[in-house]
Nucleic acid binder design. Structure first.
Lengths: 350, 350
DNA sequence: GTGAAAGCGCTAACAC
DNA sequence: GTGTTAGCGCTTTCAC
């Protein structure tokens, strides 16, 4: 049947985009109906071995690539998971996204990524576009979002997972840990080392509200513990090695008695290590330092860094597990809130 | 007309997924046709102000979110750009992806992300799924891909951009720099510092073939220059601070005369700095060190690190520029190959 | 400027 | 097990 039945549709509306090979082409070549091809693609065992073989041959021969957009439309849900993080340049989130992605990809899900740069409005815009893709699930960072973001998400009817924070009221599922507890652990550790004049050095805490929570937990523990003095100092810029040096100098100036420092992350801690070396301040003799993150360098620097590991990797894995089970089961697998906890790793800097 | 014509289709096939608000709903409420709503959404100026106002009100009132999946299907191209990198945990690529994403998002494009873990087969699988989304463009890392990947991409008919490498034969557009030149620059710099016994210390070079290219350029320059001896040492694992320490020890063992080191990246260089401090080897007096990457810490470590900056950020921006102009113009903006070059930043480690 | 109509390529009942 | 049939929600001619 290579002649047209009616002559109409003879001339394509427009030179066809690219004469994409469709499922119908495969079906024709394999001498089956399109729906059989579709079925084969989704459940190979549901079609007869003979038909399956023909279809496989046809697919291979034509170089057919299924159109997931069409599939997503027909199925009313795309095999995409939208992930929104503050920044992927941040090693913490990169680790989580990486783990999440690895797990999801292996189950045939794609990852649509967005970053907010710690801006709630940007987050809202991203959520809006994310929803436009009818994603299978959506992953956000933190529990605090704009009113409209929450509204959109609640109305969306798709699984939502919030990560890297616990303690508030999640929209749906949550995987993370309690940041105030991290700050408290740092303070308690320093106190246990007989440090009495403490400081929490953080960066960008006006925006990074999880870092601010760690600072609060730190202060709380100081208040309850035997600290003689304590303070929280914020660097408005990014949390870098350089910020660490700046913060150390400011804190030393403010309190020359300083003998214990908790940092909002390991980059800052590393900056402090270097700056102390420059200033001739002995670590941990004169000052004990505790970081946060347990980054790649933390075990290998000099002195090696005592730090608190949040396990971004585990967060990603658990998040993926929850999402997958939700997608598969439709039924929520119960109080889907997972505390991944944190671990203080004692090394030489304290 | 709220009665059905035939009674059939009375009961929805299934309880409707979520009674999604569609363009038709908006149209009905605004008392215009769906196509007018569609037009308004894409070119607000093309509809009358009155209609526009009504439509805007309806959208707002109903909380309508366009379905990009349906749009993508109808338009035969989705507003998605697929980006495939070896790993986002690598600061280099994270920087590029971040820049790329920022630029693309501001133009209304989404980013679909994949990572290969330096595996060509995985890359092929990712390209395949990426194509399933009929993306507006696809971004790959490097110029070397499997036969099938190249075939798929050439048949795909969509803009392809390869980044982070130049010198080969790009499929379409390319933004990057010449890795051998980077290795050569490092060697030349060390030679100019009267270093004669050199080594290139790299990690994962069996997979990271761009690092291998840097090593080759390094050797070539040693051969042509006045080097007395040189070698290339590879650590099979990831390029971490720890790998740096291991590599330093191996190279020192192999050649105690060693007085100049080029690293495949700054993490390794940092590891060398720390290990030298441990061993009591003076930098740069006994050994000069050159890194690659100019990462966050490179200017602030002790001693500050002489390094070569490739500018992942610039690569991302240029890539975005090329993609956007291609998408807008359809016509290739000609020799779409951009060399972002590299800069040697001399600091204290050499 | 606006609307009617015809798909985009696929999935999912349902009947055979 | 396989084919038929309706859409999924939108874009895009094309006529008015």
């Amino acid at each position: 049947m290579d002649t047209d039945d009616l002559g109409k549709d003879r001339v394509p509306r427009k030179r066809r985009k690219m004469q994409r090979i469709t499922m119908a082409d495969v079906a024709k070549l394999a001498k089956v109906s399109p729906s059989t091809v579709s079925l084969y693609l989704r459940k190979p065992d549901a079609v007869s071995p003979a038909a399956g073989r023909e279809i496989a041959r046809a697919i291979d021969h034509l170089g057919y690539v299924p159109n997931l957009v069409a599939g997503g439309l027909a199925a009313a849900s795309s095999r995409v998971v939208s992930i929104i993080v503050p920044s992927i340049r941040n090693a913490f989130f990169a680790e989580t996204v990486s783990a999440l992605q690895a797990e999801l990809t292996s189950e045939g899900l794609q990852v649509l990524l967005g970053h907010t740069e710690y801006d709630k409005e940007q987050e809202e815009a991203l959520v809006r576009t994310a929803l436009s893709w009818a994603p299978a699930a959506i992953v956000l960072t933190g529990l605090s979002h704009s009113r409209d973001t929450r509204k959109l998400l609640k109305a969306g009817g798709i699984p939502v997972l919030e990560m890297w924070e616990l303690g508030g009221d999640p929209l749906d599922m949550a995987v993370g840990f309690l940041h105030p507890r991290v700050g408290a652990s740092a303070a308690e550790h320093l106190l246990s080392k007989r440090r009495r004049n403490l400081a929490f050095l953080g960066a960008r805490m006006q925006e990074d509200h999880r870092a601010a929570q760690r600072a609060e937990g730190f202060e709380e523990a100081c208040r309850k513990g035997q600290a003689a003095s304590w303070s929280v100092i914020n660097h408005p810029g990014a949390a870098t090695v350089e910020a660490g040096a700046i913060l150390l100098n400011r804190s030393l100036q403010q309190n020359p008695q300083l003998d214990g420092i908790a940092c909002s992350n390991d980059w800052i801690a590393l900056g402090i290590l270097f700056e102390c070396q420059r200033l001739g301040v002995a670590i941990p003799d004169a000052i004990s330092v505790v970081g946060f993150g347990d980054l790649d360098f933390s075990a290998s620097c000099i002195p090696s860094l005592t730090t608190i590991r949040p396990s971004g990797d585990l967060i990603g894995k658990e998040a993926a597990r929850l999402i997958l089970s939700r997608i598969r089961a439709a039924a929520p697998p119960l109080p889907a809130i997972i505390d991944t906890g944190h671990v203080l790793i004692e090394r030489c800097s304290s």
